[in-house]
Design a protein around this nucleic acid. Structure first.
Lengths: 365, 365
DNA sequence: CTGTTAGCGCCTTCAA
DNA sequence: TTGAAGGCGCTAACAG
């Protein structure tokens, strides 16, 4: 445990005053005699001097730290977002505080305060606050910290918000399924997906309505999903939803899931019931996680540019002035889990390989 | 952007001196008159005072921040580790700096310096440094920062190391496969898995040798895996390995993968080649990611307690004094991807369902 | 029991 | 072009 070497040590070693070293630190703006500069630079390097960001921050300067609060690190959609944010931040020499709240929303308040106490310049929320004026966000901004968030894109898009256009995405999903002949499309979600879930459901309903069809009440299922918070639990919730929606003779020919995890659960449920995907049932997910390419059949899903979302969020965290909100419309990627609607509802049609026909326009895994 | 309220404001408001407030802050150790304490507490609460961790840190106190450097956030084995570390840290009121280096090992140095500059008390490395004396770790400890790491458990287990017993795990794998009649067991890895990979390979060899069998050179494959760093790329590298190892009439009856991602790739490769798993080929993974339960058949794999590993690592980050190293031996979990060895190598035996027999001792998904 | 004082490492006027 | 002094918010002696 060496004792930290300070600006003073460098000054003494170089035979100059501390402020000279300080000037040198802050760049060449103030003209320094080249000789002096070299001396300072030499001793700084030789001593292995590293300025203390702590002390700088204390003086009201930039601490070069931003915080990110995520609802759940283990949710597979988060890592790409985190990576995007971290990449963007570190490009500008910033570090990232990460805070996982495991969907205990009340923790967001304490964690954002903890961040503020540690002098972060800004804190970002990844899908965690329903609105920017939620308690956690308020706590942060009361502490003089900038805030930004990743949210569903509603009609008005506040500054510093990266908004996900759920409705636009669901419209694409319906376009796709409709073209395949599906008229009865169901929806599976759970109580966990609180911000995007309702929008996706509403988006599905609206898209169907615009074609004169309707979303049947009994074709939607919201799993209560209490207890464990982990990824597998979310898949299981999709499976339960699937069991409920599919255990009827009169069932939809396609089901959209609120996210890929649920969709994987739906595929498992279909397997449990001996329903073949996509021949007898089409399944569409949301997010386009790696997992979507692992299940079989591979999932037709809405590709959300998670990494970019993370970058855009960090962008707003780093900006001094509020930045205009962006609306991001994700795009559908078609894989093996969706196919032509079965003629008679629930009854299989003939032919084709188990994994379904490989349509040329389809994405490979 | 309010101006921050300081200890001085509280002091003035309560009509006491700053040091009285400071004493109050640091707990009741110093006897304070109850009346004074109440007054201070009241004004602090009313003003919404929050002590600055920055200033405290400057005074050489605890900053209550630890750092964690991970090779890749998007690698599915990391989130549980991060969650474990974050949970443990926040239990004690600590915050976590997260740093993603996307397997650019040289970044570990700059990032751990950046953390040190920001006054972290300790930095942890998750599988990222081959040894505790690597440059990044050295940089941190030169700056007077404690360090800890998650590493393969070698013979000697230094303090502050959480060591994973790869050899013990591979022994269990071989026990299992051997009992199923497998005598030729292959191994698939890639150039990315640098710390655990070689140990797992060696462990497999040793376990086979102890039974008088040998690991054949041509039954092992190391995919170079250049380019993209994402999860799917790792799965693809497993697929390439599988294609190489399995495209021969004379092939092993079982293959172990260095991790679950590669194992999933092996299953895909088997599918490509029309080789049925587990009837004609057994596949065993490592890590027990959620993904292992998503593929079909579900993966027989080594369950690594990632969350606990994260906690144990954080435990060492938080401890002032070096803590003894721990050796963690993961345990095998048997699922659908392993089964009895085919009689004639490469030729299928009769009977059983496509997904393989559901042996009673097997774990369900 | 409470107040005064002197820094922690750095930056920022203001002089020299 | 360089130096001296003061202060950021807090703690830690030491007085009172």
């Amino acid at each position: 445990m060496k004792t930290r070497i300070t600006i003073k040590d460098v000054a003494r070693d170089a035979g100059v005053s501390v402020s000279t070293v300080s000037n040198w630190l802050r760049g060449q703006e103030y003209g320094l005699a080249t000789a002096t500069r070299d001396r300072v630079e030499a001793s700084a390097r030789r001593l292995g001097y590293r300025p203390s960001v702590l002390a700088r921050g204390l003086r009201g300067q930039a601490t070069r730290v931003v915080g990110l609060i995520v609802p759940s690190v283990t949710n597979p959609s988060m890592p790409p977002i985190i990576r995007g944010a971290e990449d963007r931040a570190s490009e500008t020499g910033y570090s990232l505080f990460l805070s996982n709240i495991d969907r205990h929303w009340e923790k967001a308040v304490t964690h954002s305060q903890a961040m503020a106490d540690r002098g972060v310049e800004a804190v970002g929320f990844a899908f965690s606050v329903p609105a920017l004026d939620a308690p956690a966000a308020r706590a942060a901004s009361d502490a003089g910290v900038r805030i930004a968030a990743l949210l569903p894109a509603d009609r008005d898009l506040p500054a510093n918000v990266v908004g996900l256009d759920n409705e636009g995405a669901m419209r694409q999903v319906v376009d796709h399924l409709w073209a395949l002949g599906h008229r009865r499309i169901g929806f599976a979600t759970n109580a966990r997906v609180t911000t995007n879930g309702p929008r996706r459901l509403a988006g599905l309903g609206a898209a169907l309505a615009s074609r004169g069809a309707a979303l049947r009440e009994d074709d939607t299922h919201l799993d209560p999903m209490q207890g464990s918070f982990d990824t597998w639990a979310e898949i299981e919730s999709g499976r339960r939803a699937g069991l409920t929606l599919l255990s009827r003779a009169d069932r939809p020919t396609a089901i959209c899931a609120v996210n890929d995890l649920l969709a994987i659960g739906l595929i498992l449920a279909a397997g449990d019931l001996g329903i073949r995907v996509p021949r007898e049932l089409s399944v569409v997910g949301f997010d386009d996680l790696v997992e979507a390419r692992i299940v079989s059949p591979a999932l037709t899903t809405v590709h959300v540019p998670l990494y970019d979302l993370g970058r855009m969020l960090a962008e707003r965290l780093l900006a001094i002035e509020p930045t205009a909100g962006v609306r991001v419309t994700p795009t559908l990627v078609v894989r093996g889990s969706s196919g032509p609607a079965a003629r008679g509802q629930g009854s299989a049609t003939a032919g084709s390989a188990p994994t379904g026909p490989d349509h040329p326009t389809r994405a490979s895994r």
